[in-house]
Design a binder for these strands. Structure first.
Lengths: 255, 255
DNA sequence: ACTCTAACTTTGTCGGACAAAGGGACAGAA
DNA sequence: TTCTGTCCCTTTGTCCGACAAAGTTAGAGT
């Protein structure tokens, strides 16, 4: 027979965690707005009544979570977590879980199709302008695999943005970050890869502009199948994503 | 005219960041495997030649990223980042970006349909057993909104797991975490909500067992549309998710 | 072999310290 | 006036040393 719950479990979190939680609460429930300054470390020492080392550990936690960051002068302020930064944590997790390219491909097929459907339905003129601008730049670097891969990644971010659905934008990001390095490999290894990629982007923009959902879905599928065929010339879909992503993730962190 | 890039920016990351990066590298490229012990703080002090405070700040960064954690005796070891923990960071970000329930609904429609398709195709007997077990427990608590909402959340996690696609599992998690608290509200507010929810789960398990993709997709859609109808009796889909999720997120962290 | 206790270790926290870098105010040079 | 160099103050990043609490290990005693 279970003991009747006379006592609640007492909160024994370490102090640095409590500091982080307290600041997080204020940010998430809106009392501190993104952009608002958090005090200096010394201020926080006074407010929380703990040592500066403790405050600093709490700050690291929040910083890593993307809730606060330091501006050019290193002063603390609250900020909106950037999707890409958080997504890179997830990408890293996927790598460690040794997901296969097949999983990546299947999930992306779903997510990118959903993105284009949203984009076809709701893209603004501004979205189209951004996409067109990206296309122009892509055409200019069609012979440079690294630059083209970067353009490709940006293109799909812009499509997701055009869907006006931020949940989707965020959901697709981790998988997309793992795609990115392979695109470069494929464009390098498959001669006709670059032009086909750019052509597909052109058709996608066209579909969005004409609000032609069928065409959008069709070209997204083709675009991804192209990636798949290109990839299979290099490696097996059942290989795990491994460490391919590392250098990109490292580079992204520096920014 | 832009200055020609004569110098590369020099790497001047703070020491705690370098410590974190160094350990992260070893984990991600596999030299430290999940479960392997990292040394004590004192060991790390010796190895990196920096102060313990500096080491501890680096540890906080990695801990928050889910790459290392402390076991019962508080010793450090590498570990596989848990999806749910990372996803809660993303959920928090979605709240701060004030996404609407409409976005949540649309994205989930895509992700849950993809999950069931994968599950129909690849669910194992073990997956089915877990789902059935969940169904039995759901039936037992159909009158208890909080418990039922928890079962519902778990059910969909299990469906995603049955898809054998970990990218999908991870992609759906942030949105799902935001759904969870609303389910409880709806089941509380709408009398027939509980039984309909459990019935839908039954049909979904059935569809998976019969490998009937059409039925799986159909019942997933209905299930989500039910959620939507229930939700609209309470609030507008265009409301932002706000702070509804807070208490759940706080509770999850404690675990 | 088992338990109990007494060291020893490790973590969480504290206080104080200092160099480096940023910001502000101010005077002097172009 | 605008730019530059200087002085001072604040803030951050790092270090040192310390200590209580909790966990671990080893040894004594049964």
């Amino acid at each position: 027979m279970p003991i009747s719950p006379l006592f609640r479990p007492i909160d024994v979190a370490p102090a640095y965690q409590k500091v982080a939680d307290a600041i997080e609460r204020e940010i998430v429930n809106g009392r501190i707005k993104p952009g608002d300054p958090i005090g200096t470390e010394h201020d926080l020492v006074r407010q929380f009544g703990v040592n500066r080392s403790t405050i600093r550990e709490g700050i690291r936690v929040l910083e890593e979570g993307g809730l606060i960051s330091r501006d050019s002068s290193r002063r603390l302020h609250a900020c909106l977590p950037r999707y890409t930064k958080l997504a890179s944590r997830l990408s890293r997790a996927l790598v460690l879980h040794e997901v296969t390219f097949r999983e990546l491909y299947e999930a992306s097929m779903t997510l990118e199709v959903a993105s284009i459907e949203g984009a076809v339905e709701r893209a603004t003129e501004e979205n189209l302008a951004e996409l067109t601008n990206n296309l122009v730049r892509s055409e200019a670097v069609v012979g440079d695999p690294a630059a083209l891969a970067e353009c490709d990644a940006e293109f799909h971010v812009l499509v997701a943005k055009a869907s006006q659905n931020r949940v989707l934008q965020l959901a697709r990001e981790p998988a997309a970050q793992l795609f990115y390095p392979t695109t470069e490999m494929i464009v390098t290894g498959v001669a006709e890869g670059g032009p086909r990629l750019v052509a597909a982007h052109g058709h996608l923009i066209d579909a969005i502009r004409r609000r032609d959902r069928e065409a959008g879905v069709l070209w997204t599928r083709r675009h991804l199948q192209d990636w798949r065929r290109g990839f299979e010339k290099i490696a097996s879909l059942d290989r795990s994503v491994e460490h391919m992503y590392m250098e990109h993730a490292q580079a992204a962190r520096r920014r």
